[in-house]
Design a binder for these strands. Structure first.
Lengths: 256, 256
DNA sequence: CAGCCCGTTCCAGATGCTAGAACACTAGAG
DNA sequence: CTCTAGTGTTCTAGCATCTGGAACGGGCTG
């Protein structure tokens, strides 16, 4: 089972279809074994096998992502406000992200023109050490958990200002909590900047991040920091509509 | 493994998180077994377990759908032309679908306003017997395969004109092949109509369907049939750009 | 306190995964 | 044509792991 799931992830992570031998080499498993696993995955319709016996992920897997987004009430709660925001400032992109392990994953992305970005950017992983959303989630981790996570991060140098190590990153976290927003100043790419503010549930836990980003030739860090104050107001509105939506769902559930 | 994958599908198909006992009942398996399977699925990061031991699909599953769409060159090839089309006729929605088993699944959806529809409609299953795309794929199945599939369809009455049985549906298929497009006239919903034309690869196999749809209060079947002729031209353009893209990819692969 | 439902753990038993080896087939080289 | 090296597939034996019944602990509610 574990091997089968790892194999599924492996096939999913490679854009091109692969044959049994190739997959066996990548997975480090005997190919007869891989062959059997692939048969099960095909039978369950997670993978498809073409005429040349090459395997690719099945279209049916789209269903997973679809149901997933439906199961995020925070997304429904946030989208209208994000739409309104994007109309007010056409220089930035907006992103809604949720924690995934110690990193963050984007679950909605609005381009400056107001269009929902294509699915290519949905499900993007935002790294913990170099993105505004990632650092925001780190800053609100319980201390004990943080000390567990920090040593396991890889400090890939994504941009000129990427934090070089855990110590450097750690000094920024109290500041993020104090100001109520995090800033990425050319840390995640040579010329991309961004800010992110927390969205909390009733218990005060940070369940999502609302972020704005831009390229340095379209905006400045100063402008994004002003933007962060606007995002904070939006976040409060989203929290409200999230909680009421939660209640109506609970109410609805009671009557089922 | 098989049970584990079925369980993953089960969790994915329910919007709300569920507990072990509930899932065990739904899956028809002993709950100790389900518990163990869930642990594996959580370890592989396909599921998430919250504080109340309820299980939901993990955000990471978004990755599957994302890589999937990337692996569809036909989508990249078709989107620009679809964008152009939607600008010319603002009364219809456009859909790009690919076969999935004996049904069809949408992999791109353009609303009349030109926006890419939200992911909610991505990965939607278009039924074989009552949607224009579904019938189009049926019409181009090899005869031997068709006789296998037809008896297994469920002829749910989705709209006033839904085909009542296999015999009725089968008489329409030659017409679809002859005209080069399929029509759905209030078969898939009380007031939705649509047409679909095939997109073929170099070998002449139907690999995707390009469809237009509308509500009866916004358009008419006659108008959509005119639209079908336009779609056929678009389809040819898409086939061309798909094949050249295929070649450049092959070329690129050779040099890796 | 007793009863109920939940998630979790334990353990014996057998299913089915595991992996090495052998088979069939194709493509290319000599 | 033959030989080789590559592919996908099948076979088999052995044992890890799935399987599922039963029992445990812990919140509830009456």
């Amino acid at each position: 089972m574990t091997n089968g799931l790892a194999l599924l992830s492996l096939v999913a992570s490679t854009a091109r279809p692969h044959g049994v031998t190739e997959l066996a080499r990548m997975a480090g498993l005997p190919k007869s074994h891989v062959h059997r696993l692939l048969q099960s995955l095909v039978a369950a319709r997670y993978l498809e096998k073409d005429a040349q016996s090459r395997y690719r992920i099945s279209v049916g897997a789209l269903r997973l992502g679809r149901e997933l987004l439906r199961s995020f009430p925070i997304r429904r709660a946030a989208l209208p406000e994000m739409m309104r925001l994007i109309g007010e400032d056409t220089r930035v992109s907006l992103v809604l992200a949720v924690p995934f392990g110690h990193e963050a994953i984007s679950i909605a992305h609005l381009a400056p023109d107001g269009n929902l970005r294509d699915v290519d950017t949905l499900g993007s992983v935002l790294s913990a050490h170099s993105s505004a959303s990632g650092k925001l989630f780190l800053a609100h981790l319980p201390d004990t958990h943080l000390d567990e996570v920090l040593p396991r991060l890889e400090f890939n140098r994504q941009g000129p200002n990427t934090h070089p190590d855990a110590a450097s990153l750690k000094t920024e976290l109290p500041l993020i909590r104090q100001r109520g927003y995090s800033v990425n100043n050319c840390e995640n790419g040579p010329s991309t900047i961004g800010v992110a503010v927390p969205i909390r549930n009733r218990e005060g836990e940070v369940i999502a991040a609302l972020g704005a980003s831009a390229r340095t030739d379209a905006s400045t860090v100063e402008h994004l920091e002003e933007m962060a104050l606007v995002l904070q107001k939006s976040s409060q509105g989203i929290e409200l509509s999230y909680e009421t939506e939660d209640e109506t769902e609970a109410h609805h559930r009671d009557h089922n």
